[in-house]
Amino acid sequence: IVVKKGSKIKSWKDLKGKKIAIGDPSSSSGYVYPIAELYKKGLNVTKDSKLVNITSDDQRVISVLNGDVDAAFVFSDARDIAAKDDKRAMTDVVPIYFTQWIPNDT
């Protein structure tokens, strides 16, 4: 889970009521794993947050960078890809939470 550097969101606990960019509901890193893990921790983001579907991981990072959303569920290298469009993605978007390891499903 990534947020904009300097955000008041410092951990998953701060996501309640926030606008979160998600991937397709079949996406392991963009939806399934973060939704399930946060639910187990006590945060039902599907009810307690506003979810915005943005299909590509790099565009979710850019949406965080531009302030369109408060956070995004992405795979770990998404900032690298987004940095090809805007180098600030590596410095101005920071991870706050990593799910358990997700096997590569491709």
Results as ranks from 00 to 15, higher is better:
Asp105Asn: 11
Val74Gln: 06
Thr91Gly: 12
Leu43Ser: 01
Leu38Trp: 05
Lys18Ser: 11
Ser7Trp: 07
Val2Gly: 05
Val64Trp: 06
Val2Asn: 14
Thr46Asn: 05
Pro25Ile: 14
Ile35Cys: 00
Gly23Met: 05
Ser7Glu: 08
Lys50Arg: 13
Thr91Pro: 03
Met90Thr: 08
Phe98His: 12
Tyr39Lys: 15
Lys84Trp: 05
Val3Ile: 13
Tyr97His: 12
Ala36Met: 12
Glu37Val: 11
Tyr39Asp: 09
Lys87Met: 11
Gly67Asp: 03
Asp14Met: 01
Arg79Gly: 08
Lys10Pro: 00
Leu51Ser: 02
Lys8Thr: 13
Pro95Ala: 05
Gly23Cys: 09
Asp68Gln: 15
Lys10Arg: 13
Gln100Lys: 15
Trp12Thr: 13
Lys13Glu: 12
Lys19Cys: 08
Lys19Gln: 11
Ser76Cys: 05
Ile22Phe: 04
Tyr39Ser: 12
Ile20Gly: 02
Met90Lys: 15
Asp24Asn: 15
Lys40Met: 15
Asn104Met: 10
Leu65Asp: 07
Tyr33Phe: 14
Val74Cys: 11
Asn66Tyr: 15
Lys13Asn: 07
Gly67Gln: 02
Ala71Ser: 10
Val32Ala: 03
Trp101Leu: 12
Ile9Ser: 09
Ala21Gln: 10
Asp14Val: 00
Lys40Glu: 15
Ala89Lys: 08
Asp86Trp: 08
Asn44Gln: 00
Asp68Ser: 13
Lys84Pro: 03
Gly30Met: 06
Val52Leu: 11
Val3Thr: 11
Asp57Leu: 06
Val93Leu: 02
Pro34Asn: 00
Ile9Gly: 06
Ala21Ile: 13
Val61Ser: 05
Ser28Glu: 11
Val3Gln: 01
Asp58Arg: 12
Val69Trp: 06
Ala71Asn: 02
Gly23Ile: 04
Asn44Ile: 02
Lys4Gln: 11
Trp101Arg: 14
Thr91Asn: 14
Arg88Gly: 09
Gln100His: 14
Ile62Asn: 04
Ile35His: 02
Ser63Trp: 07
Glu37Leu: 06
Lys87His: 06
Ser11Met: 05
Asp92Ser: 12
Val3Phe: 03
Tyr39Leu: 13
Ile35Asp: 00
Thr91Asp: 15
Val93Thr: 06
Gly42Ser: 00
